[in-house]
Write a protein that binds this DNA or RNA. Structure first.
Lengths: 419, 419
DNA sequence: TGATTTATTTTAGCGTCCAAAAAAATGTTG
DNA sequence: CAACATTTTTTTGGACGCTAAAATAAATCA
């Protein structure tokens, strides 16, 4: 159903568009903003005057390069997002550590702060307060006032319930349903949201190449687990309560090998690192501890063995690829994406799995569907998760907080204005 | 990325909202329209004056029931969609027949016209012209001028490419990539669109109970094949080119039994009618002709046998349910819908499959995901497909054609105006 | 008949956009 | 160096659509 439209909507949408355009392209002259947004010069003047008055945007000098090459006419003055307008924070939770990345409104980040934390055995009600404490301490260390932080985005591997703000299940915790958003909001007084790693990587991809990834794209994350971020109609899709994309726990083979989730035959039990290691050590299938984290050097060793021709190792990667291929085939049959992107540290072994992935796609997917899908492997950067989290958080500010142009939003979230 | 907003957008959106509200609730007084849409009485007066002038809406008398119970004050005058504003047509294509349902702008339908047509062996370039011919002939028979038809919606079982407007693959045709939209548009001069049956059923469900189905719902269609309509964020999701929801050809078991699509182990090969029949006649697995249509009476016979305790028949339905259950488990893991709805003639045998469906869900899906999903079986009406097609077609008119309020749209599509 | 009630229309004004004109700020040229 | 050319930005004047409030319409009530 459509929603009522009025001038309020127009203002919000165009201010949001203005901010998003600046965020995407960096400092731009008013005239360029007009071209990119489709708004008239008059409107750009009007909107920018407001945003400057509110301290969200400010004038920076003419572009050096542009100024160098002599051109006639009035020189352009570029506008930029004001870094001092506000701050945000991305929190990435993984096994035994959390990472904090503070950024200003322009998206410039401070150096990541990595903190050891014994997540696995922490009592569930202590986790939120511990994180809140670390946030306070580290913000102080960096000279960032708490009140200047408008929003905190949190990323976690596993199942995050976006509605309740709890971590339903994650390999980083023994406990379930760990409250995160509520305690942080209560203690810090800052709006928070939570999502899973794969969705954040999808956000990072969209930000990196909007054109390419903004249709329907499935981002498969290979690592300690197997995750999935779905971009549907250009937007990251979360499902009814953020639980979409549990690709790793999509069943592959009824009654197959044990998975970390306690069920049998999940895709992850074949294709995540521990599934591959187990397959390679097939003698000890039964007493294999699925919960033990696979060390990076062990995984690299196995990859090297496979590359050196070790039949058992090769077979383990083949099997992982085959199951992954069938999973992707099922995914494509359901979602019909334009693109499937493989990401995560597990893609290091893509060369070892490639053939079996494609063989499985051939066996498991009608040609009509297969022929339309582009397949891609992206190099994995550790910072993709926090980058994506920041992108998502800042977009929320652009669209839903600062775009409204209501004084309350500015005062409440921005904390200060620039003269 | 956001899009530019201006008063044009406001007009379109509010006119669309006005029309959709009338379509959903039937004749309404201006004051009620105001409450339902959130628009002010002044705006309602203004918009309705325009729509009346354009012949899209007209005044009907006061509601009898409301008039009967004496009330003070100026009596309300109700507005309704003008049936004579334009006409639309739904075309449903199935094996060996096509069905035409003409409707006016208010959604009132003529009696369905069912036409035998040997679809399976028709040369692919003849199909479009044949359908066009039937449309012309039957419109004339019903006294409907061709020029009064604004839009034609087409539904087909199988894979319809919404971009090219071709039937990529369907059990109703031996050929592939049968052009439909283009020839119809060329011959009739009327805008057309095509989609698959399951999506149309999803549309019909949304129309029947907007509140219930407008979040994230998966509609599984059981019949000669197994289809899927996905409602994501309240909108039917088509995928990159309308091929989403190929649930029936989602692989269940690598190298399993032969499917109509030519691959092995698709879900449909177990759970569609022919899969069940084959399983029951397991002696002749190898020379079973998957392309032969299963007759309704045979299917009913098998159901009765199972209900009477025939072990072989019971086993066939159990197996169908098990595979369906695993498929639904995979679907839920990927999509995280609020609801899963079973529809189609195959649901007659739901009682025979229920236990095995649920057992498979238990085995194939983590509890965290299972516990949030509501499960529902809806009685199947043969008209759901054409109803859904009409709903979709009329909504397109409401939102994208008549909402613009441009004279060209009115003249071009409506054909005539009412005094 | 006049008061009351309810629905609808009219009026006056507001916010946003935009085309066109004006202004600003620089380079070019005779 | 003054007039002209060019380009960016601002200002002006108006359009469009929404809305609150006032006015009007059309009924019932007493």
């Amino acid at each position: 159903m459509l929603k009522k439209a009025n001038s309020d909507l127009v203002r919000r949408q165009n201010r949001g568009l203005f901010l998003e355009t600046l965020r995407q392209h960096g400092p731009l002259a008013r005239i360029t903003l007009g071209h990119k947004t489709g708004l008239s010069p008059a409107s750009i003047t009007s909107i920018s005057a407001q945003l400057i008055d509110e301290g969200l945007v400010y004038s920076v000098g003419e572009d050096e390069a542009a100024a160098a090459q002599l051109r006639r006419g009035r020189p352009l003055t570029r506008l930029a997002l004001n870094p001092r307008a506000t701050n945000v924070l991305a929190v990435s939770i993984s096994v035994d550590s959390i990472e904090l990345v503070f950024a200003d409104f322009s998206g410039a980040t401070h150096a990541p702060v990595k903190l050891r934390m014994d997540t696995y055995d922490i009592p569930k009600e202590e986790f939120g307060p511990r994180v809140a404490h670390e946030i306070k301490a580290n913000a102080r260390k960096l000279g960032i006032e708490l009140i200047s932080i408008s929003r905190i985005g949190i990323a976690v591997q596993g199942v995050a319930d976006t509605i309740t703000g709890e971590i339903s299940w994650s390999p980083a915790f023994r406990a379930r349903d760990i409250p995160v958003v509520k305690p942080l909001e209560r203690i810090l007084g800052i709006p928070c949201s939570i999502g899973n790693n794969a969705n954040m990587i999808a956000e990072a991809l969209i930000a990196a190449d909007r054109k390419k990834y903004s249709g329907n794209t499935a981002v498969v994350f290979l690592g300690h687990g197997v995750g999935l971020g779905l971009i549907l109609n250009g937007v990251v899709y979360g499902g009814a309560n953020g639980r979409a994309g549990e690709f790793g726990h999509m069943n592959h083979l009824p009654d197959g090998p044990l998975c970390r989730c306690g069920r049998h035959g999940c895709l992850e039990a074949f294709s995540a690192d521990y599934g591959i290691v187990r397959m390679a050590n097939s003698g000890q299938t039964h007493d294999f501890d699925v919960h033990a984290a696979v060390r990076d050097e062990d995984m690299r060793g196995l990859e090297q063995a496979a590359e050196a021709g070790d039949a058992i190792a090769i077979n383990a990667f083949n099997r992982a690829g085959e199951v992954l291929g069938f999973g992707i085939a099922r995914l494509i049959a359901l979602i019909n994406p334009q693109q499937v992107v493989l990401a995560g540290p597990g893609t290091r072994a893509y060369g070892l799995m490639k053939d079996s992935i494609w063989e499985a796609l051939r066996r498991g997917l009608v040609h009509d569907l297969r022929k339309y899908v582009e397949f891609e492997v992206v190099p994995y950067g550790k910072d993709m998760i926090t980058t994506g989290t920041l992108v998502e958080t800042l977009r929320h500010l652009d669209r839903d907080v600062f775009a409204t142009g209501q004084k309350s939003a500015i005062v409440e979230f921005a904390g200060r204005k620039i003269a």
